[in-house]
Nucleic acid binder design. Sequence first.
DNA 1: GTCTATAATGAGATAGAC
DNA 2: GTCTATCTCATTATAGAC
Lengths: 226, 226
Amino acid sequence: MEIADLERRPPEETKVSTKDKILDAAEELFAERGYYGVSIRDITRHAGVELALANYHFGPKEELFRHVIARRAEDNSSRQMASLSRAIAAADGRPPSVEALVRAFCEPMFERTMRGGPGWKHYLQLLSHTANTRQSHGFLAPMNERYDPVVEAYTDAFKRALPAASARNVHYSVFFLQGAIVYALAETGAINRQSGDLVDASDFDAILDRMVPYFAAGFYALAGRD
Amino acid sequence: MEIADLERRPPEETKVSTKDKILDAAEELFAERGYYGVSIRDITRHAGVELALANYHFGPKEELFRHVIARRAEDNSSRQMASLSRAIAAADGRPPSVEALVRAFCEPMFERTMRGGPGWKHYLQLLSHTANTRQSHGFLAPMNERYDPVVEAYTDAFKRALPAASARNVHYSVFFLQGAIVYALAETGAINRQSGDLVDASDFDAILDRMVPYFAAGFYALAGRD
DNA sequence: GTCTATAATGAGATAGAC
DNA sequence: GTCTATCTCATTATAGAC
């Protein structure tokens, strides 16, 4: 996105606004070291702006964090909902297959983290971090709850795809799938080490191609027990 | 554990050592808020000891963190290795089934987090947190790498159980399984909310009963593609 | 091994000039 | 909207008495 802008616009418009510079830096550093591991000084230094500007534009640190989350949250969750709608439309009256639903669930985030630019990668790593964190910090709660409607909509679709399965087992199935997604988005690189680089944590196309048959089989196996 | 000790032992032996009081408090708070979210003051206050004692017993903060990890790491990883050995012994010459291996992999940690007392629960939440974090913080690296041999041993066993599968797909399969384990150990409670309490994040017996058929089916599905 | 006291640094936030 | 300077407080770490 940035490169396209540089080539397309006159010089005086190529400048990223101070607010976005701060948000970009905060997003990257929060994703790396977590909320408490980053100071406002770290953020403004990394953004190349003065210390006082963070507070001027965003207020206290927790508000800055909320702005980082909010900037991409709507886009992210609405893409996941749109992906579900497309899967339903493509199935033409009948419920989409479990395979199609697993793919629809993962694809928007994997697409963003691979090809959305560095900002999206940082954002999704931050999302992974908060999804794997308990809500002792009150200011994280709204961010996690924002995705509950998405999960609920997908869970309902999975229930329709597996009418013989118990609701409980569908919830377990979605739970396991969420765990794998959160872990993949973190991109810790442990899997590169462990597999002797047979698996690349940053190749989400390859990951998705395996996740679809793998998790679909899991859903069917649990459904078969009901 | 503490209550049993109080009832069983003479008064002069009931006291937990200062070192362990500090380690217990650090373990709990690090698990809740992460390394940077906790000050040494928080830890010593929670432990009921003087501030200076943390530095006296453990040196700087990073060293204290390392001691927290080291205290249970050997026990944890050796239990996972012992669990694998038992599965191999029980299979009596042939490779253990995929189901047996999934169970053997998860059971020691799930057992500890459910019935090992609060210290173990905190420790495994902390482990989940670090497993889902990139190695920008150098002092986490040794802790994650400690589990690589365990993962490698299980991966080898999975390869023997699925001789027709490619090594690559077995690594992907283990990767997805690890993600679900890490997410489950975090016990964020999101799944309770999402499922309307049909699923309880703290009931690891119920989780394991679903994980075994679910992930075994995933392994078989990927192996079937080779 | 424990406690009091303090040094040195970095943190979040903001007032006021431009 | 930006920058300089500063206030106030919390942090890690340690020196020295007991």
